[in-house]
Design a binder for these strands. Structure first.
Lengths: 204, 204
DNA sequence: GTCTATAACTCGATAGAC
DNA sequence: GTCTATCGAGTTATAGAC
């Protein structure tokens, strides 16, 4: 049987993600973990504490994978392809995660974000430099590196956050939507690569 | 002095958007509107009712503008340019709105979405057809129309939702971030137009 | 560590005076 | 229509037995 602390985190994660902080109930978390409310407070002292623990846990799983890829030595084209594939696969496995993380961020504001991120050394500068170098080498067209990065992340993540809206407009069911996301991987890559393709006369 | 009902909706909008439904307090809404809780219930009967009223109000302002543009007779290139400009300007005025709408969607699920959208006749089919026709005419490269639409919306909206994260990573302050979003309009347009530019030999 | 029981509190909702 | 006062449900958090 799973240790209580781990079991609590896992249950809390499920409840927080599906209900959001404000509407999550300690009772439901306890029930799901097969323990009682008292023990919840024994381990985590307060709801807010428990929430922090869960959020850190969740973010700990995501950030390092992406950071590793960003720091690798591959060409930009290779990186884009791998990044999109890895990222969307991650999201397919955890479709409700980005919505949850971003909701709570929105509600809690900047300071909270700062606190969560302080454990990680996110440093996109090396990536920016790589983009600049490839532009100068004429391998890709002239583009602002920050916007490029934001564009790619947006195209990957947003459809998962806006899933209920897209599903409503498109009429797709859950399986179809998943399938659509899988094919979308290639589309995002080719869309992006087309967008950054060098102009026909890159030197002139 | 503003009529109570209008004043309540406006105050409720602020509180719901900044706190989310679960953590919004009727007391705070009443305070902000300069009235008391009793009156809140006199007008709206329950918190849930008030929330619905606010959400409908908010969506009513957004949807029609976009729908009008989508249905217009301009070329795709023109539409993309106008859409991005209009949409981002709208978001700059209401930066916390998309995060709020999407949070509540996440928490409430598909049925809720359906209920909200039933007043509107969102019909992207005409737009899809237009894309297909321009592909066949060789005006743009071969691209899945749905993915094109999702890509554009993603690039516009996502940076507003993920604002706290981007701000943290980039170190930009609020004014800088706003400025960045303004310049980003052109970048999204040119990125998209590059991406859908026809191949050099569109006919072969 | 784990449980039960309950205190302490928050908040939406209602009743009733004006 | 607007206010004050208060109820009562639902929740977090604590005390204390085992």
């Amino acid at each position: 049987m799973m240790q209580s602390r781990e079991q609590i985190i896992e249950s809390a994660k499920q409840v927080f993600i599906s209900k959001g902080y404000g509407e999550a109930r300690m009772q439901e978390i306890a029930d799901k973990a097969g323990i009682n409310k008292g023990l919840l407070h024994y381990y985590f002292k307060s709801k807010e504490n428990l929430f922090h623990a869960v959020l850190k846990e969740v973010i700990k799983k995501i950030i390092p994978k992406l950071d590793l890829l960003i720091k690798s030595d591959e060409t930009l084209t290779e990186k884009i392809e791998k990044f999109v594939t890895l990222y969307i696969d991650l999201l397919i496995e955890n479709p409700y995660l980005p919505g949850f993380v971003l909701s709570e961020m929105n509600l809690r504001g900047e300071g909270f974000m700062k606190e969560i991120m302080q454990d990680y050394d996110i440093n996109p500068i090396k990536l920016m430099v790589q983009v600049q170098m490839e532009i100068q080498a004429g391998k890709i067209g002239n583009i602002n590196p920050i916007n490029l990065l934001i564009n790619i992340i947006s195209m990957c993540v947003f459809p998962f956050i806006a899933r209920p809206i897209f599903k409503e407009i498109s009429g797709l069911n859950d399986d179809d939507y998943l399938q659509f996301m899988k094919t979308r991987k290639k589309e995002i890559v080719s869309f992006t690569l087309s967008a950054i393709k060098p102009q026909i006369y890159p030197i002139g």
